[in-house]
Write a protein that binds this DNA or RNA. Structure first.
Ligand SMILES: [Zn+2]
Ligand SMILES: [Zn+2]
Ligand SMILES: [Zn+2]
Ligand SMILES: [Zn+2]
Lengths: 179, 179
DNA sequence: CAGTGATTTGGTATAATGTACCACTTTATT
DNA sequence: AATAAAGTGGTACATTATACCAAATCACTG
């Protein structure tokens, strides 16, 4: 019985998440610079190039924790690069960043968001606040097991997943109840 | 010990799924007619009208277990109604069917699929086969709890969800290994 | 049954998102 | 320097979805 309780606790605690930052007031410059230096390092190690355009697109997507649409990137790129960049170039940069695992796509929003833990193995699970629009990523061992289990019970061999949870983040819940 | 085993089994078994049909050879006419009569009944009870267009769109979406795009519906509608129907009318019908819970939208595919258990409370979880393209819906108690648990541990108040699992269905796994 | 308001549909035009394609430039390799 | 590979510029276009207003149909009332 003791053993059961212990192992349950261990499983319970294995959870990566940036919800503390994404859904609360915080120093976002740290998120941004961490993401950029991560990206530099990641690309160097992989032997690929984080060109100015790719870097600028990543920077724009990381400007907040709200998913950003491709055409919003197109509109804002001149502010960083000083010259207009057309959709195909932006989509090429986005494809690169997706393949490198530096950003994720949120299909229900037709938008993209920076990955807070690129490189480390994790499941793509997003909690998007319907009030403030910010999205946090979470990777929970128990949830992964549950997904894997549900799929295998249906004879389905799970390969990739897209999980978008919508609701109220902690901050917006407080504002809701205080108003 | 016996009690623990039993309750685990009970939780394990609470799972709605149409994967047996969706991912295997079956008499699909039964799926179709069941869906249509369900829809009639559901609409009557709700006091709304399943008009010819709405019914035809539902019928087309239920023609298989593969998600169907809105413009595929537009193209095929003449074969049922005998006259062309333009995109806005199709999208209006789709919006109606979505609101009634008779179909679901799969955002990563920009496509729609019939709900095998409309009316009954269920979570939106789809297993889409990357080989044959068919999508099964599943609603598992344990997965729901796990999602709820993951969200609440991040202080997130879960309201709606979109879960798309991609991989190989049972049938396509066999073909893969036999070839 | 006629009148009236609400719901549904028809149809044009356009918005929003994403891609095919080819020429050109830059970078890496020999 | 020559060559190959990778990346970018730019036009045109494909796909998905919606705004808007007019016409038709339906539901209800007197
Ligand atoms: Zn931040
Ligand atoms: Zn991630
Ligand atoms: Zn079927
Ligand atoms: Zn359903």
């Amino acid at each position: 019985m003791v053993h059961y309780t212990k192992s349950l606790l261990v499983l319970t605690l294995i959870m990566l998440s940036n919800s503390r930052a994404a859904h609360h007031h915080h120093d976002h410059n740290r998120c941004l610079s961490a993401a950029l230096s991560h990206a530099e390092q990641h690309c160097t190690e992989a032997g690929v190039r984080l060109t100015p355009i790719r870097r600028a697109v990543l920077e724009l997507i990381w400007q907040s924790h709200r998913p950003l649409g491709a055409y919003a990137v197109v509109e804002q790129l001149p502010s960083i690069l000083g010259r207009p960049i057309r959709p195909p170039s932006v989509y090429r940069a986005i494809d690169f960043l997706l393949e490198m695992g530096l950003i994720h796509r949120l299909p229900s929003y037709n938008a993209f968001i920076g990955c807070p833990f690129p490189g480390s193995e994790h499941s793509d699970v997003f909690m998007v606040c319907r009030c403030c629009g910010s999205a946090a990523e979470v990777s929970a061992e128990t949830l992964n097991k549950s997904l894997e289990d549900t799929a295998s019970r249906a004879g389905f061999q799970l390969e990739t997943q897209n999980i978008e949870l919508s609701g109220l983040c902690a901050s917006c819940q407080q504002e809701d109840s205080s108003s």
